[in-house]
């Protein structure tokens, strides 16, 4: 048994485990968010913070949705996706041309979880949610627009260097909790977070490997 265990451990170590990239913000393509005047995103809130939001909702209502906002359109900066990254492991300079035409410029990203349905739409300003979430799964819906202009980026990557073309920007964040009541009984509960993108800044950086 011990030998089998050691063998399995060896196989894991040698083959490596394919771990899917995880974004700490919980929003696809957004690796980090920094609020200008304080604030937090849901994925970084402690249980206590979430609980305090829930408590702040107060008494149950007769019918309908009740919402608690942690922040409403609070301005933040974000670090977005890497449009491309290319390294040169050879000993010769490597000239390349990259056509930026398939990249997408999103206007917003929204995540809802818990038993929140499409009827939350009216609660989040400018949110676009289609479909509904009836179980405890997390879903997201986003609008995607192609970039305004196609552009070719030509450059030479020096030996043992890596070039990265990345996006950062400004955004507005709205998030909170909501409960749905029927006859004062809480029927559904969940949380939501909307990121509305304002600006995309592009940056090209070469770094030594």
């Amino acid at each position: 048994m011990k030998k089998v265990f050691i063998l399995l451990l060896f196989v894991f170590i040698v083959s490596g485990i394919n771990v899917k990239g995880y974004e700490s913000t919980g929003h696809e393509g957004i690796t980090d968010v920094t609020f200008y005047d304080g604030g937090n995103i849901l994925s970084r809130m402690s249980r206590q913070e979430l609980y305090s939001g829930s408590s702040a909702m107060g008494k149950n209502i007769f019918w309908g949705w009740k919402t608690h906002y942690f922040c409403i359109e609070d301005k933040a900066s974000y670090i977005g996706e890497i449009v491309f990254s290319k390294s040169n492991k050879t000993s010769e300079p490597l000239p390349i041309t990259y056509a930026v035409q398939e990249s997408y410029s999103r206007s917003s990203s929204i995540k809802v979880s818990g038993g929140i349905s499409a009827s939350i739409k009216g609660m989040i300003k400018a949110a676009t949610i289609s479909g509904s979430v009836d179980s405890d799964i997390v879903t997201e819906n986003k609008e995607e627009y192609s970039v305004t202009e196609k552009t070719n980026i030509s450059f030479v990557i020096q030996p043992n260097c890596k070039i990265t073309y990345r996006v950062t920007g400004d955004c507005y964040i709205t998030n909170g909790l909501c409960n749905y009541y029927a006859f004062w009984i809480k029927m559904k509960k969940g949380n939501f977070e909307l990121i509305e993108f304002e600006t995309r800044y592009y940056e090209l950086v070469e770094e030594e490997m």
Binding site: V147, T151, N152, E198, Y201, Y202
Partner: peptide, 11 residues
């Protein structure tokens, strides 16, 4: 240096 897009406004 070739054209470079420095920023884009979404709206």
């Amino acid at each position: 240096y070739d054209d470079f897009i420095f920023f884009e406004n979404i709206f």
